[in-house]
Nucleic acid binder design. Structure first.
Length: 103
DNA sequence: ATTTTGACTTAAG
DNA sequence: GCTTAAGCCAAAA
């Protein structure tokens, strides 16, 4: 646990349903600060428990996969998402179909 | 306490 | 479509 904000972000990430994805800005908004998308990314980066916190379900605003410290980076992340049933457009997630509704 | 940095986002060239 | 610039936030140094 690094900090309250980070904890909140983790909680939100865990609540993203399988087969869906959320954007950093979206998590930031749900965490209470719509403009803290960057901080959210930071929280993900320092992500302590991969299986406990599915940071791979968090993508950029346009569905692009960014970062990912585990596995082989983006490649692994994309694979995991596809495995969970998330639609993909080349290297980007299909937000139109798999974007988390926030509840 | 101040500065730097980064898994962001949007706007503009 | 890609690069640059600027805005905003929180954590780490």
């Amino acid at each position: 646990m690094a900090s309250p904000f980070t904890q909140k972000v983790y909680a939100l990430a865990r609540r993203i349903p399988k087969g869906n994805v959320a954007t950093y800005g979206q998590l930031a908004a749900l965490a209470g600060n719509p403009r803290a998308a960057r901080a959210v990314g930071m929280a993900m980066r320092t992500n302590p428990d991969i299986p406990k916190t599915p940071c791979h379900r968090v993508v950029a605003s346009d569905g692009s996969l960014t970062g990912y410290s585990a596995g082989h980076g983006i490649s692994t992340k994309r694979k995991m998402l596809m495995d969970e049933g998330v639609s993909f457009k080349g290297q980007k997630a299909d937000l139109a179909k798999s974007l988390w509704n926030g509840k």
